[in-house]
Design a protein around this nucleic acid. Structure first.
Length: 678
RNA sequence: AGCGGGAUGGGAUAGCCAGGAGAUUCCGCCGGGCUCAUAACCCGGAGAUCGGUAGUUCAAAUCUACCUCCCGCUACCA
């Protein structure tokens, strides 16, 4: 089962094919697409809620629009799914409910209290997106669950300061609310054993160990939101996305099962719902969501008596020219753009699947794209298939009457073996390489036997060409997962009247038929074309960056270039009245002692004399200041900021400092500690 | 910061868990040959102190310790 989950801002790749399991069968037996589930769950609900509000549409409509967009785009790249579901349909609502009920019955659910913003006038809880206020970290205006204008930090419920309800404009208050918790911590032993037998990539196996060893926290699985799947029996609570998201894997397979019939595919058997061992569940995900698939999800499955995943394969990220994708900066090559350039979808499929290691990040550049297309696809595969067929068409009107030699048959079998064992090991790259390497063998073979030196129409010539055509047939079979359309073209041109997409690996021995002169399989990409593409990409990024006041700092290399105006945060237009200013109790203080906070790399615990008393204040100052030099320094302190606890140390006030480096503010005269700043 | 993943000739990779000759393969580069083909194939060549330092060992890319850089996850700039 291929499950691909994608998350906003974290584009990662997934191979275009994974496989289906039958119970106990090696995966490679059916190295063909099976039940694919693609979810838009990754569009985490909070951003969806926020963005939909911005655009004035309902979250459902917004999410469905994305769902549709993907649904349209994938077929263009010949990525298809046995079932393309989403988390918001009836099946998933129903099965999610069932999961939760099973969890409750098994005693894994309990209630706990958390702080929730509340609109006193409407007397209702406020979902994240209806709350605005001040970011507790940077002081910027923040809304919902993230500080979208300031530091970009994710904010937990209850963190926003001076919360205001966007429903009524009234100040909101925080109330304690009952929420549901899933006692994941009780499953620590199980999860630990589960990880021991989990297949897939090493990062997926190792990373979750951390959480287990540190002691698993129980998981709050409900939210006060107005969209999502209701918690059974609790009208005001909605389940957290990551509860119903993976359950969609189950739901989607059920839908598939219902469509094709249980004889063909029995979802209950696959998920072990009938008491059996289950099928083979393989998750192919991006490495940013390892936690959900190796802790929460198996915990849910286990607690509800389902089968566990066999493997979790976590890929790296895609970068462009060595830098991370950024849709807001338009550092991206959109599917439509790629196709509009006239490139065949198979080329990108090939590049993405056979470039680099599975776990590694994958860099895309137009240069390398050209290099690989021209070298491997045009030069090796295309060239071999074309020259063999051209020769065959001219001299034999297609496939000559001869038996395939043992040498060639064995080489083809070796390629199949390489392919199958790679698939078993989740090694997409090697599986893809099998086809190209076989074509390379073909080139060597035809070269060695020089059919053009042999008498036209002779038995010897027929033998060589027959061999080459069999290699071409086999190359198409092994190439099908990465380049399905091209594989089909080869088979068609070879005069094979069968569906290469349905072919199993033993189809490598299919006998080709009669045919005319073939067309060239792949087109070369010229150098000036690459230059154009690069320029276009640069221009696009520049344009997007120029008209945007993006404060994200993802370009480390510009860090020491001179700060021009655009590097500053924009001025806040909104004015405050004098009373508001008066409400700030700002004082001159003197640092009496300073020591680093244990375990923190920037935080310093200060004792600050502010005249009337001495305060303990924690401040993040280590990046610019030496802790030992701080004692005796005069500082400016915001005295009436609410107390907070950082790293277990109480901070009673705030020491003012400028910029990311925390350049301390001080006085230039001799103002005494305690003096008010006004 | 903690935890993961990574660092191997210009590019991309294998090898590492179970240490051993001159470090794998592909691309690119230089020189030569051949030519049915969108030029592939053959021969030869340059190019890596296997991120750094120290250690274990007769022997280290591989094991150990510390460190640097990149990328994620978690986490703290009051």
């Amino acid at each position: 089962m291929w499950t691909a989950v994608r998350k906003r801002r974290s584009p990662h790749r997934s191979p275009p094919w994974v496989h289906r399991r039958g119970r106990g069968e090696p995966l490679a037996e059916e190295a063909r697409p099976a039940v694919g589930v693609r979810l838009w769950v990754g569009h985490a609900r909070h951003p969806v809620a926020l963005n939909s509000a911005k655009e004035g549409v309902s979250p459902e409509a917004y999410a469905m629009e994305y769902h549709r967009k993907y649904e349209e785009t994938f077929p263009k790249f010949n990525v298809d799914f046995d079932n393309y579901g989403h988390t918001h349909d009836e099946t998933n609502t129903e099965i999610t409910r069932e999961f939760v009920e099973r969890l409750e019955d098994a005693g894994y659910i309990y209630e706990g209290e958390i702080l929730v913003a509340w609109d006193p006038e409407e007397d209702q809880p406020l979902p994240d997106r209806y709350v605005e206020g001040t970011c507790p970290y940077c002081g910027e205006h923040a809304r919902g669950d993230e500080c979208d204008e300031g530091c970009g930090r994710h904010l937990e419920p209850g963190e926003i300061e001076n919360p205001v309800s966007t429903l009524t404009g009234n100040p909101a208050e925080y109330r304690e609310r009952e929420h549901k918790y899933f006692a994941v911590s009780e499953l620590a032993d199980y999860l630990s054993e589960f990880l021991d037998r989990l297949e897939g990539t090493s990062n997926a196996q190792n990373q979750p160990r951390e959480w287990i060893e540190e002691g698993l926290q129980d998981w709050c699985i409900t939210r006060d939101m107005d969209w999502g799947i209701d918690y059974p029996g609790e009208e005001e609570l909605v389940l957290y996305v990551w509860v119903d998201a993976p359950i969609e894997y189950v739901s989607s397979s059920k839908q598939y099962s219902e469509r094709v019939g249980a004889d063909e595919y029995d979802w209950e058997e696959v998920w072990g719902r009938n008491g059996g061992d289950g099928g083979e569940i393989v998750h192919v995900i991006g490495r940013d969501i390892i936690q959900h698939h190796t802790i929460f999800w198996p915990a849910m499955l286990h607690a509800t008596d389902h089968a566990e995943p066999r493997a979790v394969c976590a890929t790296g990220f895609v970068t462009i020219d060595g830098k991370g994708l950024s849709t807001s900066r338009n550092r991206a090559i959109w599917a439509e753009e790629y196709l509009d350039e006239g490139f065949h979808p198979d080329l990108l499929r090939y590049y993405l699947t056979t470039m680099g290691g599975f776990q590694q990040d994958l860099d895309f550049t137009w240069e390398r794209f050209q290099e690989r297309v021209n070298g491997e696809l045009v030069g090796t595969v295309g060239n071999f298939v074309y020259r063999s067929m051209l020769f065959a068409a001219r001299n034999f009107d297609g496939t000559p009457d001869a038996d395939v030699s043992d040498e060639v048959r064995e080489r083809i079998d070796a390629a199949v073996e390489q392919f199958e064992s790679a698939v078993k090991n989740y090694d997409v790259r090697t599986a893809g390489d099998a086809a190209v390497e076989l074509a390379q063998f073909g080139n060597e073979y035809i070269q060695q036997h020089e059919p053009w030196q042999l008498e036209d129409g002779s038995d010897e010539q027929a033998q060589v060409i027959r061999d080459c055509l069999q290699v071409a047939t086999a190359v198409a079979v092994l190439l099908e997962p990465t380049c399905p359309e091209k594989a089909e073209t080869v088979w068609t041109q070879l005069g094979i009247d069968a569906d290469v997409h349905a072919a199993e690996t033993d189809a490598v021995h299919t006998e080709p038929g009669a045919f005319d002169e073939p067309d060239e399989l792949f087109e070369k990409i010229e150098d000036d074309r690459v230059d154009e593409l690069d320029e276009a990409l640069d221009a696009k990024i520049a344009a997007a960056t120029a008209d945007e006041d993006d404060t994200e700092d993802d370009d480390a290399e510009t860090a020491d270039s001179a700060m021009d105006e655009s590097d500053f945060e924009p001025l806040i237009d909104e004015r405050i009245d004098f009373d508001t200013f008066e409400s700030l109790d700002i004082r001159v203080g003197r640092i009496e002692s300073a020591e680093g906070v244990e375990g923190a790399d920037k935080l310093v615990r200060l004792s600050v004399d502010i005249g009337v008393e001495t305060r303990q204040i924690v401040a993040g100052l280590k990046q610019l200041h030496d802790v030992d030099d701080l004692t005796g320094e005069k500082v400016i302190v915001l005295a009436n900021l609410e107390k907070a606890e950082l790293f277990g140390v109480e901070s009673n006030g705030m020491v003012l400092a400028a910029g990311d480096q925390a350049d301390l503010l001080t006085t230039s005269g001799d103002a005494e500690p305690g003096t008010k700043v006004r």
